[in-house]
Amino acid sequence: MKFRAVIMLAIAATLSACGVNSVPTAEEAAKARWADVQAAYQRRADTIPNIVATVKGSAASEGKILTDVVNARANATKVQINAGDLTDPAKVASFQQAQGALGASLGRLLATVEAYPTLQSQANFQALIREIEGSNNRINIAIRDYNTSVQAYNTKIRTFPDAIGAKIVYGAKPMVPFQAAPGADANPTIDFGNSN
């Protein structure tokens, strides 16, 4: 009887040191952070129609930029990724590309606003600009938190002793961190001469 108890304790100790509990905990934390990234992007997408409506009222001549923003928002909301897709680099890259296009369109919109001092002075527009800035800050924080969780998970499934449970019990695969879009490190070019 004592021998069985000792064996059971040894098995329990061995399993607890092999990532049986820590691997799924780390995986779920990373998935939760991904949900935060999606929520931050959704918040920004929900704010855009209000911004577009406000800008249309004051800068109707810049219709192409507004159309680009609306189209980019539509494309960004079409690309969906769920927690099960976080190990697929192509799906994560597709999501990032769509969100990057939306961010670039918003950048052009904000640059256009800089050219219209009367538009800048409108209280409603100023409030909406603060909303966009707040949304972008939330997105950046959510991405940082997601990448931190992915790093912790990926490290856990690759280090001893958790790697044993990760491979044998769960068949764990590394998750894909969120990366900046190509060219994100370059300064944007703003040209007010031609709005084609």
Rank of each mutant, 00 (worst) to 15 (best):
residue 3 F to H: 12
residue 4 R to A: 12
residue 4 R to M: 15
residue 4 R to Q: 15
residue 5 A to D: 14
residue 8 M to L: 15
residue 9 L to F: 13
residue 9 L to M: 12
residue 10 A to R: 09
residue 10 A to E: 03
residue 11 I to K: 12
residue 12 A to V: 13
residue 15 L to G: 09
residue 16 S to C: 11
residue 17 A to K: 01
residue 19 G to D: 07
residue 22 S to F: 09
residue 24 P to T: 06
residue 26 A to G: 04
residue 27 E to G: 10
residue 28 E to K: 15
residue 29 A to P: 08
residue 29 A to L: 11
residue 30 A to T: 00
residue 31 K to N: 07
residue 31 K to I: 09
residue 31 K to G: 03
residue 32 A to Q: 05
residue 36 D to V: 06
residue 36 D to S: 15
residue 37 V to K: 13
residue 38 Q to T: 12
residue 40 A to H: 02
residue 40 A to N: 00
residue 43 R to W: 10
residue 44 R to V: 00
residue 45 A to C: 06
residue 47 T to A: 15
residue 49 P to Q: 01
residue 49 P to G: 09
residue 50 N to Y: 01
residue 50 N to C: 00
residue 52 V to R: 07
residue 52 V to S: 09
residue 53 A to F: 04
residue 56 K to Q: 06
residue 56 K to R: 12
residue 56 K to S: 05
residue 59 A to S: 12
residue 59 A to E: 01
residue 62 E to T: 04
residue 63 G to K: 15
residue 64 K to L: 10
residue 64 K to S: 08
residue 65 I to N: 02
residue 65 I to Y: 05
residue 65 I to S: 03
residue 66 L to F: 10
residue 68 D to W: 06
residue 70 V to G: 07
residue 73 R to A: 12
residue 75 N to I: 04
residue 78 K to I: 01
residue 80 Q to F: 02
residue 81 I to M: 08
residue 84 G to I: 06
residue 84 G to K: 11
residue 85 D to S: 07
residue 86 L to I: 01
residue 86 L to E: 00
residue 90 A to P: 00
residue 90 A to E: 01
residue 90 A to S: 02
residue 91 K to Y: 00
residue 92 V to F: 09
residue 92 V to L: 09
residue 93 A to L: 04
residue 93 A to Y: 04
residue 94 S to G: 03
residue 95 F to K: 02
residue 96 Q to R: 04
residue 102 L to M: 08
residue 103 G to F: 01
residue 104 A to G: 09
residue 104 A to D: 03
residue 105 S to G: 02
residue 105 S to M: 05
residue 108 R to Y: 08
residue 111 A to M: 00
residue 112 T to E: 07
residue 112 T to W: 02
residue 113 V to N: 02
residue 113 V to A: 10
residue 114 E to H: 06
residue 114 E to I: 05
residue 117 P to N: 00
residue 117 P to A: 01
residue 119 L to E: 08
residue 120 Q to T: 08
residue 121 S to T: 15
residue 123 A to Q: 14
residue 123 A to W: 05
residue 124 N to L: 06
residue 124 N to W: 11
residue 125 F to V: 13
residue 126 Q to T: 06
residue 127 A to D: 07
residue 127 A to M: 09
residue 128 L to A: 11
residue 129 I to E: 14
residue 131 E to T: 10
residue 132 I to K: 06
residue 133 E to C: 08
residue 137 N to K: 11
residue 137 N to D: 15
residue 142 A to R: 05
residue 144 R to M: 12
residue 145 D to K: 00
residue 149 S to K: 14
residue 150 V to Q: 03
residue 151 Q to Y: 09
residue 153 Y to D: 07
residue 154 N to P: 10
residue 155 T to I: 07
residue 155 T to Q: 10
residue 156 K to H: 12
residue 156 K to Q: 13
residue 157 I to W: 07
residue 159 T to S: 15
residue 159 T to Q: 14
residue 161 P to W: 10
residue 166 A to I: 06
residue 169 V to E: 09
residue 170 Y to A: 09
residue 172 A to K: 04
residue 173 K to E: 11
residue 173 K to R: 12
residue 173 K to V: 04
residue 177 P to R: 02
residue 178 F to D: 02
residue 179 Q to C: 03
residue 180 A to K: 03
residue 181 A to M: 07
residue 183 G to M: 05
residue 184 A to Q: 05
residue 184 A to T: 03
residue 185 D to C: 11
residue 187 N to D: 15
residue 188 P to Y: 05
residue 189 T to S: 14
residue 189 T to D: 13
residue 195 S to A: 15
residue 196 N to K: 15
